[in-house]
């Protein structure tokens, strides 16, 4: 029988992956390092990119302009603003900061045509890192991940092993943050651990 509620670490709120993440640890020289970014804030920001007031307000609240180039992400400290459509961005921020960011955006964008939606619990983030991370990701999606084409700051919305995801590369290792719907997360985690088997997988907390 499948356990419904997994071993959530003491003192933490449960996440969609608690019941599937195995023991923390693994070989030090593993080519693939997996972890879950627990409860990061996710806001959907919508507005017209041609509206100067909207862009100025959003830039003021976020500290960086929402990227206008498709398939890219802007970052400021640990916050990432990912392009998801010509008039839509996903703002990913540290756990617990989303409510303050939401009200900062609301007040900076007052009077403009916009929408801010808190979708933090809709998805979770799997962090895929390590020397073989690119090879693992390439097994499941048709995006050209060669460093000449897809480097730090690039993002993509696509299907990874048939699961709809948004991922972005944030360092040269390479490392990727993969956003996946909560209900698909256990499946994708299982797929990633299996795809990484040949390179060695280490799970971090």
């Amino acid at each position: 029988m499948v356990e419904k509620v997994g071993p959530t670490p003491p003192g933490l709120d449960p996440t969609p992956l608690d019941r599937v993440i195995g023991p923390i640890g693994g070989p030090a020289e593993a080519g693939v390092v997996l972890s879950e970014r627990r409860h990061w804030g996710k806001l959907v920001l919508r507005g017209e990119p041609d509206d100067k007031k909207f862009i100025t307000g959003a830039t003021k609240a976020l500290g960086v302009a929402p990227p206008s180039k498709p398939n890219t992400a802007a970052t400021i400290q640990s916050t990432a603003i990912i392009w998801t459509a010509p008039n839509e961005w996903l703002v990913v921020s540290e756990p617990g900061t989303e409510a303050a960011l939401e009200s900062a955006l609301e007040s900076a964008l007052a009077g403009t045509h916009h929408a801010i939606t808190n979708v933090s619990d809709h998805s979770t983030i799997i962090r895929l890192s390590g020397t073989a991370a690119r090879a693992v990701l390439a097994k499941g999606c048709a995006i050209d991940l060669h460093p000449r084409v897809f480097g730090v700051g690039q993002s993509a919305q696509t299907n990874l092993a048939k699961a709809q995801v948004i991922f972005r590369q944030f360092d040269e290792m390479p490392s990727y943050d993969i956003l996946v719907r909560a209900s698909f997360a256990p499946y994708l985690w299982a797929w990633l651990t299996d795809a990484g088997l040949e390179f060695g997988v280490r799970v971090e907390g």
Binding site: P70, N71, A85, P86, A142, I143, A156, Q157, T158, N159
Partner: peptide, 11 residues
């Protein structure tokens, strides 16, 4: 037109 070349299963 926005995202560039993609596999048809995304469409």
């Amino acid at each position: 037109p926005w995202c560039g070349p993609r596999d048809d299963e995304e469409f």
